[in-house]
Design a protein around this nucleic acid. Structure first.
Length: 670
RNA sequence: GCGCCCGUAGCUCAGCUGGAUAGAGCGACUGGCUACGAACCAGUAGGUCGGGAGUUCGACUCUCUCCGGGCGCACCA
């Protein structure tokens, strides 16, 4: 409702400006007034026009207001302060619109989007940093879909990288395991995990977590001579993985696939799923790079360096580089090494050409993991037919942490250089800051923390060091904590007790997802169990609790939100309910409920889900306030009771919807 | 050395494309459960928005500079 009236107001303003001053402005500044006493919509346009029209802002504002006259949905316009133009809505009409709940989003500019997120190296368990990535990505997918966009969700799997190589080195050389033994270990781990409570203890990803950390240390823990040999082993292993078709690669395949399954299971606990898992092994073996290389050379994005430190390499100019063409550019980015192998950025360019359907090659596809409502496919050299179509997206979003902004910029630069400017413009590096541990949290977990680190505000998580909080451990801990709360609060009978595990899980996931979403993307999260396990104040459970309260009202009243909204629509006279002393707060709740579409579009435009998290919290806060002040079930005036029930119905509807976009369920009871 | 990000209440963070008296949560203190469940509500205290200069009718927001912190700047991924 709000956005629709905002557009109506803007259009009307344009007409007035054109008629009165013969002015056409590119943008009309609109804002939400800081207080309802200034109305519901405002514009400071008169300040901007003051210079142009050589008149005082206040005079201009008065002239505009005089010309604004009547506009459907509005009660009036007025000048305030030094020249603000404030608009007052026809509250009754606005409420009727809001009650209907049909908030049209603009259908223009809908694109086929692709979101890549999670992308954990399949050599260890997921940790809290990966959770932030996946939760941000999954939430953004939900937002795009809510806006009507078609979205493919991808999780890129680097199964032939140095991290997988490291854990393979661990299996082969630290543990001396054969292919058969590794295969057996994975089977044993899966059997153990099957029976375990949290399904995590003894799982393969946990096993690899420790082995990876041990191997990383092993590289530097010997004599210089030994370390040299170990490093050599590392790179030989890496090259065997890349080549494929050998025992080393077989172990890598076994381990990375088993760990990947664990990652999918972990994320599924948070209701996060994927459509397609492109793997680096196929990018290599299906020769994606060769196709990209040909294009890059042809378009002149890459050139062969004949001198300087990059002699013998194919390089590209970095974005923003000011070195003239032809001059020696030692700062250029190497894409093909002097030994003929391609770097990470090179492979990424090829992959992104595929994403936009510009490569002229495609993956093979095989089904890999079945979700309740869809199948997730994985790349393969020789795939199955038929298979769904992936790739060829119009807009892409890469959820990748801020440390990788340089390589991401390189890929965009390459696309632009190849003349794919539209694609480059619709390539969004959805960057976010890392999740770190507070020193206190690190100590609590039993890690050794140096004097220097103790003074820092936060300490970076490191898979290499095995330093961090594993995702499943955190989820288990949250579920245990919410279960204890639920047990302490609920007094129902056997039926209620049977529902408790499910409810505890819903609350735990709500707490976790909200925690990861309440911070804006470029803020480092200094993780602490005290904050993450909090269920009071600005948290997911607070919002879920507001939902439960609202539902309880309808349950006890023996009615439904839909029925009450239908009754509300029949009320002839509404104005009285929205004006007067204690009506302002209720109107504020309606008004915020009406802002759904505005918030959604803002989140998409800024790639920032935190705005929706804040919106949901404020909605819950205003509802709780309303709940406290106005007792509904004992209201004797039946028309007013209908009005109050409708208010609760609208708030409930918006809360549940906002939570669903955040990937948070709304429990029936808590 | 170059690039990016951050610095707002004791702590953790919001603050929409510059706009009206700078907000929330936590913590502290005070009060409220015989009313739809207190995972709640009401109130009090707490701020030179890191410092300085500039642009502007107007700056937490834009520019410059300095201070403090973080992260990137590989023929690693």
């Amino acid at each position: 409702m709000y956005q629709e009236l905002q557009k109506r107001f803007e259009q009307h303003l344009r007409e007035v400006l054109a008629a009165k001053y013969n002015l056409e402005l590119a943008t009309i500044p609109l804002e939400i007034p800081p207080d309802l006493k200034f109305g519901e919509l405002a514009t400071p346009i008169a300040f901007e026009l003051a210079r142009k029209l050589r008149k005082a802002p206040k005079i201009i504002a008065q002239e505009i207001v005089a010309a604004l006259a009547g506009l459907e949905g509005f009660a009036g316009f007025e000048v305030a302060g030094a020249g603000y133009i404030n608009a007052r809505l026809d509250r009754a009409a606005g409420a009727r619109m809001t009650a209907l709940g049909e908030q049209e989003h603009s259908s223009k500019g809908l694109l086929h989007a692709m979101v890549e997120h999670t992308s954990i190296n399949p050599n260890k368990a997921a940790h809290i940093g990966h959770l932030r990535n996946a939760i941000l990505g999954d939430t953004f997918v939900r937002l795009l879909r809510a806006a009507g966009q078609k979205v493919d969700v991808q999780n890129y799997i680097d199964n032939t990288g140095v991290q997988v190589a490291d854990v393979v080195v661990g299996f082969l050389h630290l543990e001396g395991k054969s292919v058969a033994e590794v295969r057996q270990l994975i089977v044993d781990c899966e059997a153990r995990a099957e029976g375990a409570v949290g399904r995590t203890a003894g799982a393969i990803d946990y096993y690899c977590w420790d082995l990876y950390a041990r191997t990383s240390q092993w590289y530097t823990s010997g004599t210089d001579e030994e370390n040299e040999a170990r490093k050599k082993l590392r790179y030989e292993t890496l090259h065997e993985l890349e080549r494929g078709g050998n025992e080393t690669a077989e172990i890598a395949e076994l381990v990375s696939t088993a760990v990947l399954r664990r990652h999918l299971e972990t994320m599924l606990r948070l209701d996060i799923g994927y459509d397609f898992l492109p793997r680096e092994s196929e990018i290599l073996h299906l020769k994606f790079w060769e196709a990209a290389f040909a294009q890059l050379k042809e378009k002149g994005v890459l050139y062969y360096e004949n001198e300087g430190k990059n002699k013998g390499c194919w390089v590209m100019t970095r974005p923003g580089s000011e070195i003239a063409e032809g001059d020696l550019n030692e700062d250029a980015k190497v894409i093909v090494r002097s030994n003929g192998t391609v770097t990470y950025v090179g492979k990424d360019i090829a992959y992104h050409l595929w994403k936009f359907g510009l490569l002229g090659k495609d993956f093979g596809y095989k089904p890999f993991f079945t979700y309740p409502d869809h199948e997730c496919w994985i790349s393969a050299e020789q795939g199955d037919e038929p298979h769904p179509q992936f790739g060829g997206a119009q807009a892409i979003y890469n959820v990748i942490d801020a440390r990788q902004s340089d390589p991401q910029a390189n890929v965009i630069q390459a696309l632009r250089g190849m003349g794919y400017t539209d694609q480059a413009d619709r390539y969004t590096h959805f960057s976010y800051e890392m999740v770190a541990l507070t020193p206190r949290c690190a100590v609590e977990l039993g890690y050794e923390v140096s004097e220097e680190d103790l003074k820092r505000p936060y300490i970076e998580v490191s898979g290499r060091k095995g330093f961090g909080v594993k995702a499943d451990d955190l989820i288990d801990k949250l579920i245990a904590a919410t279960r204890a709360e639920v047990d302490a609060r609920q007094t129902g009978g056997a039926e209620a007790e049977a529902a408790r595990p499910r409810i505890a899980e819903q609350i735990a996931i709500g707490a976790l997802r909200y925690f990861m979403l309440k911070f804006t993307r470029n803020s480092v999260i200094a993780f602490d169990f005290k904050d993450a396990l909090s269920f009071e104040g600005e948290t997911g459970p607070y919002i879920q609790y507001a939902v439960v309260r609202a539902r309880n009202i309808f349950r006890k009243a023996g009615t439904t939100p839909e029925a009450e909204l239908a009754e509300f629509a029949k009320l002839a006279e509404l104005d009285g309910y929205f004006h007067g002393e204690d009506a302002e707060d209720i109107w504020a709740l309606w008004l915020r409920s009406a802002r759904r579409t505005l918030v959604l579009e803002q989140c998409i435009a800024t790639s920032e889900p935190a705005h929706l998290a804040k919106h949901a919290f404020q909605l819950a806060q205003e509802f709780n306030n309303f709940y406290h002040k106005h007792h509904i079930l004992t209201e004797e005036d039946s028309a007013r009771k209908t009005f109050l029930l409708a208010t609760a119905a609208v708030a409930l509807r918006e809360l549940v919807l906002a939570l669903s976009w955040l990937g948070i369920e709304s429990p029936e009871a808590m």
